[in-house]
Simulated assay, not measured.
Amino acid sequence: MLKRNILEIHVLVLAFMLVVWYFPTNFNFLIWNVFLAIVPFDLALWIRATKSTRWLKWGLTAAWVVFFPNTMYMVTDFSHLSSIGTGLMTETQFFNYAILASGVLMGMLFGMSSAHAVAIAYFGEKKSLQTLAFYAGLSLLSAFGIYLGRFLRLNSWELVTDMHGVLTQVAQAFTTHSLVFVVSFGALQLAILLMYHVLRKM
């Protein structure tokens, strides 16, 4: 049943990508962004299901942490609404708004679900303080990752292809501008993750 549900999720993602690709919108970048957002979701499922060595689990978790900001990054894609206007007046705006919102919410759901899965894999259902600390640290790291992606245009895989260049830019990114962004978006993510966690428990 679980495998079937996972397959259905990927089919829905593929269908969304085909719609974005086939119909004229200003948001073709959503295809790539949604693809990057589902990567940490798949990694989280693997982390929770793995029965192998600790080293494999930690390696998967490290990869998950690197890719996780791609999920919450998508909330910043709402900034692209400026390309079609912020009012809901025309049929074109209706369609574009629906496409953009679908992609953003999809990415955020992948983020919330994957964070919840990893938290359960490491802390179980009852360790509330550890889970809270995990979400808080993850939110700040992710917010900084979003800043690097949105403003410095860095991508997750560049840690492998150009680690020295990435680390150099990261060292230069600690500014008042980045601090305000990280605190603001870190708090936003923490609130979202905690709300999702509580709702799942209910």
Rank of each mutant, 00 (worst) to 15 (best):
T76S: 07
Y73M: 05
Q169A: 05
K126L: 06
S184G: 02
H164D: 11
R150G: 07
Q169I: 08
A49K: 15
M72E: 02
N33F: 12
T176E: 15
L132I: 11
G149E: 01
S83D: 08
A191P: 02
L100E: 10
R4W: 11
G87H: 08
K51Y: 04
L179Y: 03
H80D: 09
I6R: 10
L18S: 04
A101T: 13
A98G: 06
T53C: 05
L12I: 13
F134D: 03
A117I: 01
L167I: 15
M202W: 14
H116S: 10
R150F: 12
V11A: 14
G165L: 00
L152V: 09
W46S: 15
W21E: 06
L193Y: 08
F185C: 07
A98W: 10
V66K: 06
G111E: 01
F110C: 02
D162Q: 13
N5G: 09
V182H: 10
D162W: 11
I38G: 00
G87W: 09
T76Q: 00
F95G: 01
Q130C: 08
V75G: 04
F110Q: 00
I31Y: 08
M17S: 12
L100S: 07
M74I: 06
I9D: 01
M17C: 13
A115T: 03
L18T: 05
L132R: 09
